[in-house]
Design a protein around this nucleic acid. Structure first.
Lengths: 224, 224
DNA sequence: CTTTAATAGTGAAAAATTTCTCGATATGTC
DNA sequence: GACATATCGAGAAATTTTTCACTATTAAAG
């Protein structure tokens, strides 16, 4: 008996893979046909071994001395992330952030296709935003299950977030991309990816403080 | 001689601290005066020790059996993140995402104050978006240095990102919050926080794939 | 054809982060 | 006032992630 256990991919790796894609797109534009981990690492300020290990997760093999074929590497990463298939998604909350996201062309390159947006504002319901129909949140649960949508993007104010998340979960959603500035509680089997601005901002504001405190170095020595 | 070396705060900790603030705001609303690491951990699905260690970075002390005083804990975290001071910031790129960010009230709670936006679209220059004046990107370098602005938010298309980042750096910017879907190269002493949607999306789409592949468990055994 | 240089791939080491264990202390109860 | 209980704080252990060291392979130069 052979037992194969698939380890989940480390999250840090998943967050770096799109960076490689961004760079690879530039290289492809310049008709650079081969690329090595070393080049990617130098370009992005990372360690070459780390890049190589990240790439290995996607299953592609490189050749010593030359590295990887640019177009194949792109394919491999995109396929690994499932960005070469179209996945339907709902957007919940058609405010300014939600509207910006509906108009964000780039999602198409990542396989995300917004089939409907939901809002509770009667003025918005029935309208189309960037070609996507805005529906009443009343229909959220029902449509999630009927259309078998697996990704829900939550761009609503904090107080509304949990209830709307629950509705999607009831409808069988598998993953919630949470932009609402609040924590949402979900069953274990639901994937939640938090994309709150504040999380990211905290890194900046604290690092700025530490940086200015330490005057350009992470070490601050003083003598008494 | 006593030598004190300040270690930088781990990034994972910085990203969790705002989560605690979100929860603490809810507890405060409910007039809950004391809160323990255990409660926070349970509420957010984290480990109590981890919560305690994160909180310790902010310098506050708790009491056995009861925990922390809610309002003081909020103060401590906010102060640690420097969210109790107002920091001026520039927004570069007044597109739909940029506009959404200028209208995002919540930044005031985090001490971020947009003093100007920059764009190269003549139709936008001279206008005000959510009360913030839109200026020509020609003035970016000069104003960054004259106004001593330390945070620049980059919400432009990929091809424009590097040049505009360079202009801010030339003007003496210290931190760039990069929403442009591309990597930007900066000198070592500049803080770059990448907030690209694609990084976050990759986690979702891959996890969905792994989840569906493994049918609800991270282990998939089969026998030959 | 041999030598040199660059890189993939692998396993080990190191570093960072998370989780566990335990003693000390505060709160409330019998 | 003694006792049970919950939590903090600190150090140790475990886990995860990154980096290092080495071998094998390929391409190109001499």
């Amino acid at each position: 008996m052979i037992e194969i256990k698939t380890k989940p991919t480390p999250e840090p790796t998943l967050r770096r893979l799109p960076k490689y894609l961004q760079l690879l797109a530039l290289l492809k534009e310049q008709n650079i046909e081969e690329v090595s981990s070393t080049v990617i690492a130098n370009e992005l300020g990372l360690d070459p071994t780390q890049v190589r290990k990240d790439i290995q997760y996607t299953g592609i093999e490189g050749k010593p001395k030359t590295g990887f074929i640019t177009t194949e590497l792109i394919k491999s990463i995109r396929s690994f992330l499932n960005w070469d298939n179209i996945t339907d998604a709902f957007l919940v909350g058609a405010g300014s952030l939600g509207t910006a996201m509906l108009g964000y062309d780039r999602f198409k390159q990542h396989g995300v296709n917004f089939v409907a947006a939901f809002d509770n504002d009667p003025a918005k319901i029935g309208e189309f935003i960037h070609g996507v129909p805005v529906l009443s949140t009343d229909k959220l649960t029902n449509l999630t299950s009927r259309m078998k949508v697996h990704i829900g993007v939550l761009t609503v104010p904090a107080p509304a977030a949990q209830a709307l998340a629950n509705m999607m979960i009831e409808g069988g959603i598998q993953a919630i991309w949470n932009f609402a500035p609040t924590h949402i509680k979900v069953p274990e089997n639901i994937i939640v990816e938090n994309a709150q601005l504040s999380h990211s901002l905290a890194v900046i504001t604290r690092k700025l403080t530490e940086y200015n405190f330490n005057l350009g170095d992470n070490l601050y020595d003083f003598t008494i």
